[in-house]
């Protein structure tokens, strides 16, 4: 199937990745997390502004064991996402507190910095 080509970097929208950690006693279901984040952000900013924020929860980056994950958003709206995260106090049935670990420009560096994952591309022997 044909796909549109990736835009040149000058035309691409700038983005940021927010690494977060969930403080809770119970395990968190990823589906519940998506619902909680989307409903919080939609309630707070409405449909039009949420479009501008360009919010996306990265599924591959969710670590169930450590309850850490990555949120992708526009580089101008990091604080909006942080506020929406701060207003969540319940995911599914469990009481939670979400704290942001930091912000990064790429997924690779976010995982390296905040998840402690090692880059093995230059691994010798």
């Amino acid at each position: 199937m044909s796909r549109p080509e990736t835009l040149p970097s000058s035309l691409r929208k700038k983005k940021r990745y927010i690494a977060f950690e969930i403080l809770s006693e119970e395990d968190i279901d990823f589906g519940d997390l998506i619902n909680a984040l989307w409903s919080s952000i939609l309630d707070l900013f409405g449909e039009v502004n949420t479009g501008e924020i360009d919010f996306w929860l990265v599924k591959d980056a969710w670590r169930k064991k450590t309850k850490r994950g990555l949120i992708k958003c526009s580089h101008r709206h990091v604080s909006e996402v942080r506020l929406a995260m701060a207003l969540i106090n319940r995911i599914g049935e469990s009481e939670v507190s979400i704290r942001s670990l930091g912000v990064s420009g790429t997924m690779k560096s976010a995982k390296k910095k905040y998840f402690g994952e090692k880059d093995l591309s230059n691994f010798e022997n």
Partner: peptide
């Protein structure tokens, strides 16, 4: 669970 980080 009501506590939030400084940046939040």
């Amino acid at each position: 669970y009501g506590m939030r980080g400084p940046r939040e």
